[in-house]
């Protein structure tokens, strides 16, 4: 039994029961399938986290975000600028103690190159209620090509512990309906 040495000195040559063998084969194939499916999703799926990232000094990143916000601010909300960048452009999100800055206004069906980084501690970018969750590090600028597929008002919550104000760290993204018919068409094409 399991708490004594094997009854047979040479146990490696014992036959394997059919049930065990069948299960081993099924489990092995299922594992191979799951492995293959992750690879396949890179080709067939629309949700793959980008690898594009750069090292950057936090102060430098902060300056980039501020410049971006200054250029495209359309209004203010509770002291936070609401920024409406052109479709297809590079847009910037900054995580800091304790807010996601600035507020963004995007258009449904358009793709944006979203840059995300932090200037102090690690934060967790958590888009709600959509539930897209990405880790944010200070010193690393992550670039993700993002295409909103639904219109509305979305919250960004912080889901990495970042100190005593962690639970007050929020942000916002507005997604507006596309103005031109063609962008709706583009969405249908999955772009």
């Amino acid at each position: 039994m399991a708490v004594t040495p094997p009854a047979q000195r040479i146990w490696w040559n014992e036959p394997i029961e059919r049930v065990e063998l069948t299960w081993v084969i099924i489990a092995f194939l299922w594992g191979l399938f799951m492995f293959g499916f992750m690879i396949a999703w890179h080709f067939i799926g629309g949700q793959n986290l980008s690898r594009e990232a750069y090292r950057i000094a936090p102060s430098k990143y902060e300056a980039k975000v501020e410049e971006f916000a200054k250029k495209h601010t359309v209004r203010e909300e509770k002291g936070v600028p609401v920024v409406k960048p052109p479709a297809g452009s590079d847009i910037y999100i900054l995580g800091r103690l304790w807010q996601w800055w600035p507020i963004l206004e995007l258009e449904k069906g358009q793709s944006y190159r979203v840059h995300i980084s932090s200037i102090d501690w690690q934060h967790g970018f958590s888009l709600q209620p959509t539930n897209i969750n990405i880790q944010v590090h200070p010193g690393y600028e992550h670039v993700i090509t993002l295409t909103p597929t639904e219109a509305g008002e979305f919250g960004i919550v912080c889901n990495e512990f970042c100190g005593i104000g962690h639970h007050t760290m929020t942000g916002k993204i507005y997604v507006t309906e596309p103005k031109r018919a063609e962008s709706g068409q583009r969405l249908a094409d999955g772009r």
Binding site: G46, Q47, N48, L146, G190
Partner: peptide, 8 residues
Amino acid sequence: LSELWLFR
């Protein structure tokens, strides 16, 4: 997952 926004 497939119902999320698109990202790559």
